[in-house]
């Protein structure tokens, strides 16, 4: 008897999922659909605008071409300013991020209170977006690059310090044990047991953050905190769409260059 000839009273049945599995899946789909339905129904959207959106966007792109290069000098200067802001802010943030990482890592923090303070700095600086920090610093220091640098730096602290603290917590304990056995105190444990192990991660994290900061600093100008965003806002407000297109292309080039440089540098340090 070959495989095909076998006779059976009932045909074979096969289903991908059991009944319980199917019910569970159905429930998840149902809840998701309900959430989406709720979101769509109550969201304040003027529907005719949605249908005309593709035309509007196409129209906007039409007005952007060809890009206008006449303000090239100004754009270049603003772009440099943007990179300066990102670099200085990254540099500045290290001075706070390093000690924060030290007290936010469970194995180096002096005591429970400092651990708590460290964790608080991580959460507070990381959860507030750059643009919101910029709003605050513009209110304090007035419009300009100072507000921009501080905004980028503050947002960076949480990000860098969190990754650095994790690196400190994941070190190999053995070299630390050796330094302790040799009679080294806390400072020397840090110097010989911890720093050599975490240094590559620290460098990589700093470079990564610099890359992110270049992207972030392109928007500072939209709230008056310096950089390319200022002239982008100006061009958009005065309907100079062709200039705006040039600025967007400039941003694209700088961001991609930043990413290339950053990934090349990170490969070298690890």
């Amino acid at each position: 008897m070959t495989l095909g000839e076998r006779e059976r009273a009932e045909p074979y049945r096969w289903q991908r999922f059991t009944l319980a599995e199917r019910l569970g899946r159905f429930l998840i789909y149902l809840v998701s659909a309900a959430i989406v339905f709720w979101a769509l129904r109550t969201l304040d959207v003027f529907w005719p605008w949605v249908w005309s959106a593709p035309t509007e966007i196409a129209d906007l792109f039409g007005r952007m071409t060809p890009p206008d290069l006449r303000r090239g000098d100004e754009i270049l200067r603003a772009m440099l300013e943007t990179i300066h802001i990102a670099t200085l802010a990254t540099f500045l943030s290290l001075f706070i991020a390093l000690p924060t990482a030290y007290i936010a890592a469970q194995n180096t923090t002096p005591n429970g209170v400092t651990l708590w303070i460290g964790r608080f700095i991580l959460v507070a600086t990381r959860s507030v977006n750059t643009i919101i920090w910029a709003l605050l610093f513009v209110a304090i220091f007035g419009p300009g690059v100072m507000a921009g640098i501080l905004a980028i730096a503050f947002r960076s602290i949480g990000f860098t310090a969190k990754l650095m603290a994790e690196a400190i917590e994941e070190i190999d304990r053995k070299p630390v044990e050796a330094v302790v056995a040799a009679g080294g105190d806390k400072g020397k444990i840090v110097l010989y047991g911890i720093v050599p192990q975490v240094l590559p991660t620290f460098l990589a994290v700093t470079i990564l953050r610099w890359d992110i900061n270049i992207r972030e600093s392109t928007v500072l100008g939209l709230v008056g905190a310096g950089g390319i965003g200022m002239i982008l806002q100006g061009a958009i407000d005065t309907f100079q769409w062709q200039t705006a297109a040039t600025i967007l292309i400039a941003i694209l080039i700088v961001v991609i260059l930043g990413e290339v440089v950053s990934s090349a540098l990170r490969k070298r340090v690890i």
């Binding site: 003027f46 959106a53 643009i131 972030e216 392109t218 939209l222 958009i236 941003i251």
Partner: peptide, 17 residues
């Protein structure tokens, strides 16, 4: 990926209100 969401937003605000 290259454009920060805020820049994308400002363009969409101009395009669709």
């Amino acid at each position: 990926r290259s454009f920060h969401p805020v820049i994308v937003a400002i363009i969409f605000v101009k395009a669709v209100g």
